[in-house]
């Protein structure tokens, strides 16, 4: 996989890597991609892709009000919160 750019894909995945990690993971992923390349030899013409074992469609339940997670429970594991909200860095200038 000559065009697999570990630095670029790790950025897409939002995973900061050290240069050593980039080198090691890049090599390992190259091997793994080489292995999964063999799927190119399978004849899939006319085959519909399968996303789930049982293609359930339009699954819904009655639209009835019911209790859900309390505000406190929803926030209790947040690393940073204030005034009943999650705190994030400034996104819009």
């Amino acid at each position: 996989m000559s065009d697999f750019n570990i630095h670029y894909v790790a950025r897409l995945a939002r995973v900061a890597l050290t240069p050593e990690e980039e080198q090691r993971l890049g090599g390992q992923l190259g091997n793994i991609l080489g292995y999964i390349e063999k799927l190119r030899t399978v004849d899939v013409s006319g085959v519909e892709p399968m996303s789930h074992a049982f293609p359930l469609a339009n699954v819904s339940r009655p639209d009835e009000p019911r209790s859900s997670l309390s505000h406190d429970d929803a926030l209790r594991n947040a690393p940073s919160r204030s005034g009943g909200l999650f705190v994030v860095p400034k996104i819009v200038e």
Binding site: I36, L39, V42, V47, E48, P49, M50, S51
Partner: peptide, 8 residues
């Protein structure tokens, strides 16, 4: 392609 092989 993997989803198609999965169907097979």
């Amino acid at each position: 392609r993997a989803q198609k092989v999965r169907a097979l």
